[in-house]
């Protein structure tokens, strides 16, 4: 009687084990078939690559950073062409952040012959920007910039 009971438990255990092994084997087989199908894998890779390409086109476009002198000349233009005093003042404030201080000297070359250049009366950057606002006379271009240790303009030479 005792040996029959033991046989019964052993059989049950073996059946249960066989069921577990069989089930897990089926699940792994499904997973393996999902991954190992070469067509599906290739398609997945292609889809992922396409998604990646769609996400980064803006990063790949080469955008030329304006130089310091170009940025400054853009401000000159914005101030001279401002539609209102408020707009011009706003551009003046922004342009002044490029300078070490509002009294940074500005030299304006009116003629460059064989000797020393001929200058207009030296002014300051604040006065020059206000001059652009008042007269709209934006003929001068940046010829030289002297920068301080922080990369701010401490002296500016313009050429008419």
């Amino acid at each position: 009687m005792k040996s029959n009971k033991l046989k019964f438990y052993t059989l049950n255990g073996v059946l249960l084990l066989a069921l577990v092994v069989g089930f897990s084997s089926c699940k792994n087989k499904k997973k393996m078939s999902d991954i190992s199908d070469p067509n599906t894998v290739g398609q997945q890779i292609e889809e992922e690559l396409e998604e990646t390409e769609e996400e980064i086109p803006e990063e790949r476009v080469a955008v030329k950073e304006p130089t310091k002198s170009e940025r400054l000349e853009n401000y000159f233009q914005a101030i001279a062409q401002a539609s209102s005093t408020a707009s011009a003042n706003s551009s003046i404030s922004e342009a002044l952040t490029m300078f070490s201080n509002p009294n940074a000297p500005v030299l304006i070359v009116i003629y460059r012959g064989s000797g020393n250049p001929d200058y207009d009366e030296p002014t300051t950057i604040k006065k020059y920007l206000e001059y652009l606002k008042d007269t709209k006379n934006n003929k001068a271009v940046v010829e030289e910039m002297v920068l301080d240790d922080y990369g701010k303009i401490k002296e500016l030479v313009l050429k008419k």
Partner: peptide, 26 residues
């Protein structure tokens, strides 16, 4: 004075008068 330098000085003076005209309008 070099004629081209003289021309630049002439233009500079003329420009100051034009600047004054803008200031007077404002």
């Amino acid at each position: 004075v070099d004629p081209r330098r003289k021309q630049a000085i002439d233009s500079l003076a003329l420009e100051k008068v034009k600047d004054l005209s803008k200031y007077i309008s404002i």
